[in-house]
Design a binder for these strands. Structure first.
Lengths: 227, 227
DNA sequence: TACTGTGAAATCTTTCACAGCA
DNA sequence: TGCTGTGAAAGATTTCACAGTA
């Protein structure tokens, strides 16, 4: 009784979604290592995961395992690619050609088989026209809407200065981009119909700072790990 | 009855910790705007937060508000700085002077009053010695331990190639660094006594991909926002 | 009066533990 | 036998709603 997707897509826990992407990465490693079948237990040991969680996460989408044996690596990998929607080409535009925007445009994880950075925009006329790498020239933000008509992108990456972030987010939404990965450390009002994920590097560091040992304290605080 | 910290530090929910850092940022904006007092309700409206959550998050640490009035902005800001431990200097080392490492070394959020990037390491002899900016020269990884004796850092940022990530993480731990912000998209075994936060950019994008509309589907999926 | 601080309820997520199948 | 798939329990987090107070 192998069904694809047993509950509505938006009922899948957010954290499950993220783990799928991690599982996919692990399976790709196993595939490269020539492993054909793996049990949830072995998977957990090898990649520091939780075996029950692994099984339950997958169970939202169907029955991919074989009782008594485990999961067929190649098959499960392909299923995950389908579930995540990585079986087609996903194009991304980077908004902001600063330090971070430039690094992200060249980031390996954003330039894979399915994911592609196909555009980068900036407001600075000095930067516009510059070639980031063969085939990737910096365009002016005002060209976003005409660009989208020729070469639609599905995801925008926000890496602009804080002052203009809200404005650029609205332009992105107006251009019809529905998914945004935001790196700007500012509270944004998300336009209706847009899905936004924020990566806040300063928050990450400050939450590490919170747990740093302090002079006034004694006693050990047992550290833990996230993600 | 104003106590600082009513429960043990490691009993504070992880998500609360992160929000503290966001609250601090909001308060800094309010301070710059000359706002002296703010209610949890106003706070929520202005920054798209949840007012009950704001109150409850703060309640882990003491009573900072005035009933009938709200919270004194300056005072609460200073409390949060103390709670997060940003009232002292926190030094960070970037491991890996590639694309991302270089961008992070120059990232504004990592170079503030309290946070400072004071070192950057790489294994490539061609990069070693290069000056990233005045006062920040790329060192060879093998110099990490002697460097730590002279200029201890509290946080390491892992931005090295996946193949060497585990090895570098262990070197970092051996050098006595207890907090790691990891950008490498790989499952790492975290050495005992080390706290690690991972930022996985590919996972972020793929979880957006998961929710992208598909050809085979009809019907609207109402999008939402994280963080 | 207009707010905070907070128990209690609701919701969400993880983990347990085992029935059932290859 | 050795595993998966999954209800049910436990645990964590958010939200409600209101007593209490400046």
């Amino acid at each position: 009784m192998k069904k694809e997707l047993r509950v509505k897509r938006n009922e899948i826990p957010n954290l499950t979604t993220r783990r799928l992407s991690i599982y996919l990465r692990c399976l790709q490693i196993l595939e490269a290592d020539g492993v054909e079948t793996i049990s949830s237990q072995e998977m957990a040991e090898r990649f520091h995961l939780n075996s029950a969680q692994f099984r339950k996460d997958l169970a939202y989408f169907g029955e991919f395992g074989v009782r008594g044996l485990g999961y067929p690596v190649l098959d499960l990998k392909n299923h995950l690619i389908g579930i995540l929607g990585l079986d087609r080409s996903i194009r991304m535009a980077i908004m902001g050609a600063g330090n971070l925007g430039t690094a992200l445009a060249g980031y390996g994880g954003f330039n894979t088989d399915s994911l592609k950075v196909t555009a980068i925009f900036d407001a600075d006329p000095d930067k516009v026209g510059r070639l980031m790498r063969p085939g990737l020239r910096i365009s002016h933000v005002s060209e976003l809407i005409p660009f989208m008509r020729e070469n639609p992108v599905q995801i925008a990456v926000l890496a602009v200065p804080a002052k203009v972030a809200q404005e650029v987010l609205e332009q992105v939404a107006a251009a019809g981009i529905k998914s945004v990965l935001n790196f700007v450390p500012v509270r944004l009002k998300v336009p209706a119909g847009v899905r936004m994920q924020s990566v806040d590097l300063k928050v990450q560091v400050e939450s590490l700072a919170f747990h740093l040992p302090r002079e006034e304290e004694s006693g050990e605080a047992p550290p833990t790990t996230t993600l």
